[in-house]
Nucleic acid binder design. Structure first.
Ligand SMILES: [Mn+2]
Ligand SMILES: [Mn+2]
Ligand SMILES: [Zn+2]
Ligand SMILES: [Zn+2]
Lengths: 142, 142
DNA sequence: TTGAGAATTAGACACAGTCCAGATATTGAA
DNA sequence: TTCAATATCTGGACTGTGTCTAATTCTCAA
């Protein structure tokens, strides 16, 4: 699926066992059409851009539903809010701590060597690499 | 420094340019004597165990001061709270999503291959690896 | 002893996220 | 078509972290 519009959003939702409602389509469209990492607040603002149509409770309920159905994933990098990620491929992130902007890093080219064995009785749920970045201070300028 | 007690806490604080007060010593002692990852709430509960002596504002102010002076670091793995880490060595974490427990992974033995180049104009602030783990479902038992 | 600066405090406040009971929309059997 | 069962949505109260501020208390050098 290359181009995202409200029509194929419904199919996308159905494909994940989600009943496509008006609100769910708008929320999915906000995430998938931009292919960006958005906070719940940003999603609500986007969806209610022109006229208010979707409540806060529905935004949170819907995001939780999407997570549950593996349509999206969440990214925990900021202590004050969760980011929602339409990319469920195995990948990692650059996190610009100054701007709050997340960028994907494809996991395909990456390997982590030397991880110790898991403690007894647990299994891996996922491995996240977060590269925290900031605007470089360029000594010699300014 | 092998054994942590309230006396050498004061030296530890001074060594980081922090004026050792009663409250700061208690908070540092809570973290360093346990060598564990604690939330602000857990730290306040620990410090005020017997009789209340340290306010919420002081706990947060002090943790921020410790961070600023690089005495501790924070670990962002849970959307609802920050963990404070007395280990400032370069290291990574196992995070048990069921219990909320963090375990250190020494960075010494670990290498990450294939990370892409940084975007223009930014520099690396830090690289975090978080291995999310959960109790293994053991099919065949129960 | 004293008072200026440092530190602490209670409690109001901010704000992301949760919860709930009532309203609304959808569905499908009759 | 009808209408009741089910699914979804909603406003608004509420919770839990974390922040802020003005007032109080502490510390220490003079
Ligand atoms: Mn809409
Ligand atoms: Mn104490
Ligand atoms: Zn991503
Ligand atoms: Zn740690």
């Amino acid at each position: 699926m290359k181009q995202y519009n409200r029509d194929n959003m419904a199919d996308l939702l159905r494909g994940h066992g989600i009943n496509p409602t008006h609100q769910r389509i708008e929320i999915a469209y906000a995430l998938f059409s931009r292919q960006q990492h958005l906070s719940a607040e940003q999603i609500m603002a986007t969806v209610n851009d022109r006229h208010s149509e979707t409540s806060k409770a529905t935004v949170y309920n819907t995001l939780k539903l999407f997570l549950d159905k593996n349509l999206i994933r969440e990214v925990i990098v900021d202590p004050s809010k969760v980011f929602y990620d339409p990319n469920t491929q195995n990948h990692h992130h650059f996190y610009n701590t100054a701007s709050g902007h997340l960028t994907d890093i494809d996991a395909a080219g990456i390997s982590i060597l030397g991880l110790p064995m898991l403690p007894e009785g647990v299994e891996t749920e996922g491995v996240d690499i977060i590269v925290r970045i900031r605007p470089s201070e360029r000594p010699g300028l300014v």
